Simulated assay, not measured.
Amino acid sequence: MADAVRRAVTIEPGTVEPGSVRVRGYRSGVLVADADPPLLVWEHRFYPQYFFSPGQVRVELRPAGPGPRSPSLGPSEMLDVVVGDAVLDGAARRYPQAPVEEVRETVTFDWSALDTWLAEEEVVHTHARDPYVRVDAMPSGRHVRVVAGGQVVAESSRPVVLVQSGQPPRYYLPRVDVRMDLLTPTGTVSYCAYKGTAAYWTVRAGGLELTDVAWGYDNPLREGLLVAGLVCFWPEKNADLEVYVDGERVQEP
């Protein structure tokens, strides 16, 4: 069933669709691009990118030579982006030989080159949102037990299960049901366009040291509000971490 779900939400590289909301990108308070809506282009299968027509770009673009070839969109041309007195070297690119003609005159910007992205009036984090990804978090009565080296690290019958398109269910546990004394924060963080910024822990239990096998969101985005402050364990990260849901061990999907 999990494989069927993944196939259902997989978008082929090179797919082009019109967006459905207004998107703006800013750098240092200067409006760089404004589209209502932009094109959504899947250069790879993971998530789309925003592409803007010339009339939707509000700053000067200067040719900066050839860029890398995209397997799905073909050769690229790099463009410097002029924002006030600043020049963002190679921060935009165009694909003049893209298979879909309407893409050929549009440009896309390196996500990190702009410091603020808005979909309508909501800040978009990490990358463009995929309209086919859905995130649902809901209270659950399942029994979740986490074991490392024969020692129980966590046990709860009140998890929050979070389901994201194309991903296995994740069970987030209240900290009072987790042996937090066995968890040590690390400097690792990850970023999700739908849930926000996650911080990680190393589990030290049963004579084992399992690095970055647990994570949590202290200040999640709206899709993940129900998991705020909870702890999730990652059995695929290390085979020595055992996670059981209703007595059945979670295996690598």
Rank of each mutant, 00 (worst) to 15 (best):
M1D: 12
D3Y: 15
A4M: 07
R7H: 15
V9D: 00
E12N: 07
P13I: 15
P13M: 14
V16C: 15
E17V: 13
S20M: 04
R24M: 09
G25H: 03
Y26S: 08
G29M: 08
D34Q: 13
A35Y: 00
D36H: 15
P37H: 09
V41C: 13
Y47T: 09
Y47L: 13
F51L: 06
F51H: 15
S53A: 05
S53E: 07
G55A: 10
G55F: 08
V57M: 01
V57I: 10
R58I: 09
V59M: 01
L61C: 08
P63H: 04
G65W: 03
G65I: 10
P66G: 14
G67W: 12
P68Q: 14
P68S: 15
R69I: 12
S72H: 02
L73M: 08
M78A: 04
L79A: 02
L79W: 15
L79G: 01
V82L: 04
G90F: 05
R93G: 07
R94C: 05
P96D: 08
A98C: 06
A98D: 12
P99H: 14
E102T: 15
V103K: 00
W111M: 10
S112F: 10
L114N: 00
L118G: 03
E122W: 05
V123K: 07
V123M: 06
A128Y: 00
Y132W: 10
Y132K: 12
V133A: 14
V133W: 11
P139S: 10
H143P: 02
V144K: 00
R145L: 03
Q151H: 05
V153Y: 07
P159W: 09
V161R: 13
L162I: 06
Q164S: 04
S165G: 15
P169T: 08
P174K: 13
P174F: 10
V176G: 15
V176C: 11
D177S: 04
V178H: 01
V178K: 00
L183A: 07
P185H: 12
G187P: 03
Y191P: 00
C192E: 03
A193M: 14
K195Q: 08
T197L: 13
W201F: 14
V203E: 00
A205R: 02
L210R: 00
A214K: 01
G216T: 02
L221F: 10
R222K: 12
E223L: 05
L226V: 02
C232A: 04
K237C: 11
A239W: 06
Y244I: 03
V245R: 03
D246H: 12
Q251M: 06
E252L: 14
